[in-house]
Amino acid sequence: MLDIKNLHVKIADEDTEILKGVNLTVNPGEVHAIMGPNGSGKSTLSYVLSGKEDYEVTEGSVTYDGADLLDMEIEERASAGLFLAFQYPIEIPGVPTMTFLRTALNAQRKARGEEELTTPAFMKLVKEKAQQLKVRPEMLKRPVNVGFSGGEKKRAEILQMAVLEPKLCVLDETDSGLDIDALRVVAEGVNALRSPDRAMIVITHYQRLLEYIVPDVVHVLSNGRVVKTGGKELALELEANGYAEFETEAA
């Protein structure tokens, strides 16, 4: 589904290279976890996948569903099923979350040549998903992420994901800021989306999330490279020993 080959990325207008040859293959139905020290390039990878303009790909390729992902506009990637749950969700003052979501869903459907959803059908869908994720309906009337607590923002991201039903979900530190109960609710929400034709990339610092969302593969990203790949037990190992081993390797 996703094939990243020798990806080199630098910040546009600067020389600092952040990703230094990342290789990663994700198949439908799989859940991949990416762990790694602060500043190793995890968020950068998620941004490059979704098309953020501050970065420049200097080498390598990314293929998504057979297409050249790097050649697609941001919104094209979205309607092709790529979703990024932001590490720091963005506020949009004055735009009710509900309106934002409906506009987004219908824009995606339109781009895919599907019928737009009627207002009642949309309301029904959102209410259902909100209930599953224990998001209070009043929150949907509030402007996108404005005044949301850290945990509420993360939950709202997952709600958006559940409504948009993407094919490739990239979750950037969705667990940080969540209390223990919220973590379980969100993880259940994510697990409910697991399906044979949907893949996930879960970026996290903590083994705890992976107890709920059990990954098929765990990668360690350090200093812009995938330095180790293993099964779910790799996360446990990291929890015990930290990243010291990889940092020396990278230096």
């Binding site: 979704s50 098309g51 953020k52 303009e53 501050d54 506009e73 941001i74 919104e75 990637r77 979205a78 309607s79 979703f83 990024l84 932001f86 969700p89 963005i90 506020e91 949009i92 934002f100 979501l101 506009t103 987004a104 869903l105 824009a107 995606q108 781009a111 958006q160 948009l164």
Partner: peptide, 13 residues
């Protein structure tokens, strides 16, 4: 730019 990126990531032109 962040707002634009966020909205477009959700599928808006």
């Amino acid at each position: 730019d962040d707002q634009m990126f966020y909205a477009r990531q959700r599928g808006l032109g």
